[in-house]
Design a protein around this nucleic acid. Sequence first.
DNA 1: ATCCAGGACAAGT
DNA 2: ACTTGTCATGGA
Length: 283
Amino acid sequence: MSPAHLSVAPPYHLARTLQSGQCFRWTVSAHQARGIVDGTVAVVTQGPRGLAVCWDGPRRRLAMLRSHLGADQPLAEIERTLAIDPVLRRLLPQTSGIALMRQDPWECLVSYVVSAFNNIPKISLSIGRLARCFGGPIANGAHDSSFPSAARLPEASLARLRTCALGYRAPYVRALARHVAAGDVDLDVIARWPLDDARAALLALPGVGEKVADCVLLFAYGWGEAFPVDVWVQRAVERWYFQGRTMTARAIRAWARDRFGPLAGYAQQHVFAGARRLKIRPV
DNA sequence: ATCCAGGACAAGT
DNA sequence: ACTTGTCATGGA
């Protein structure tokens, strides 16, 4: 592997970004992060001058890796704007530096379909097993595999899919793969569609509701207006912005988009991180 | 052992 | 449109 350098502007925080729950195939240890991007192993370390990267992918793909990590975003200016909000200003000292990743749409889509009524460690387990069972081997990867394309899954038996700890979601994942492989939706094409059109296309897929659609729009397609409302965000927003009054997820989504505009996705990340840090629980 | 987890879905108000 | 019950599985 040839080491390379990627510049990043403060307050970008690699570990906080990778551990914010956006992605499920990166592992962060003491002083380095290891992940699989574009079928290639990447080992990244954050130092005072930027990111040191070890990976054997083509050099011209480094810009893609930088984008994947969200290291190309003007976080200083973004967080300065977010800090106008009193709630976010209180959270930011603990959550500053979280960037929005630009993940592969297909892997992101499967990840969040699997996320339904699940927990983060087990989502990681399932996504890792899907790669192991159905993906291709990686040259330099110790025991890693690339994430399987949609074309690899339609013929899989439900029994073998269930070995990935998918449970009742196994039929969803296979049906989803069949739709994508059949071309009912082109995940690369809708990347260039307007937000509402792309959301509608995602919502038409099996296993994709409003929350999952927003996650893909935000973490894969880069739509900052998206504001995924899960149980953590719902509780935190109700408590911190609405005096504990119960709200529907749809109402929260509309409120967030109106309040934060194109920075709604960043606001969501800080609320989510803050809620988990403080272990916000239902009353 | 019992409970819960980044929800989607269908059926009922 | 909003509310409720249901859905495998692994970890605490």
